[in-house]
């Protein structure tokens, strides 16, 4: 079992098990969207159904005890990895975008060129973020890990915070 004070936890449900002991999980409902009185008339559902969103966030875990389909488990990631991941995914592309835009503004001073340069910079930053994320994933820090079986009434707020 893996747990310490620096773990961000969430509850997930087992939706499939591998013969080798690994399991596929879906995070439990993490948003109130689709559950209010206006759910039937809400245009937000056109963007993507709740089930579709959860299926898109399906993930695999290795290790831990033998799980069965339908089990509710608490999974966690290191809080530092969350911050590092957010910096890689969001801050790095923005930084590269601003650098490219700043250089273009100094050289050409045209809004259209600056905008195009920032867009190219953002793209380059995303490529850099991809390489960085690959390195982080290889180190094993990005994958959620099994913490414990969830109690019947256990429900962590928003699926991430304790």
């Amino acid at each position: 079992m893996w747990h310490d004070a620096h773990t961000i936890e969430g509850v997930a449900r087992v939706v499939g098990v591998d013969p080798d002991g690994g399991a596929w999980l879906e995070p439990e409902q993490t948003t109130s969207c689709g559950h209010c009185a206006s759910a039937e008339a809400c245009g937000g559902k056109g963007i993507g159904t709740i089930a579709g969103r959860l299926a898109a966030r399906r993930f695999h875990i290795d290790g831990g005890p033998r799980l069965h389909v339908g089990d509710r488990v608490v999974v966690g990631v290191e809080d530092r990895m969350l911050l590092k991941g957010a910096l890689a995914a969001y801050a790095l592309p923005l930084l590269v975008g601003f650098l490219a835009g700043g250089v273009a503004q100094e050289l050409v001073a045209s809004d259209a060129v600056t905008m195009a340069s920032m867009a190219i910079g953002l793209g380059a930053g995303l490529v850099a973020a991809r390489l960085l994320a690959r390195r982080m994933a290889r180190a094993g820090g990005l994958a959620p890990r099994f913490v414990r079986l969830a109690a019947a009434d256990e429900c962590l707020p928003r699926g991430v915070a304790q």
């Binding site: 995070p27 993490t30 948003t31 969207c33 937000g44 963007i47 969103r53 898109a56 966030r57 993930f59 990631v77 990895m81 969350l82 991941g85 957010a86 890689a88 995914a89 995303l126 973020a129 991809r130 994320a133 690959r134 982080m136 994933a137 990005l142 994958a143 959620p144 928003r158 699926g159 991430v160």
Partner: peptide
Amino acid sequence: TVKKVSPALFQMLGIYLPLIT
């Protein structure tokens, strides 16, 4: 984009994005 850049990062950070809409 985040999903494409890193599926693992998407699992970790994807929760915030619908809230931002």
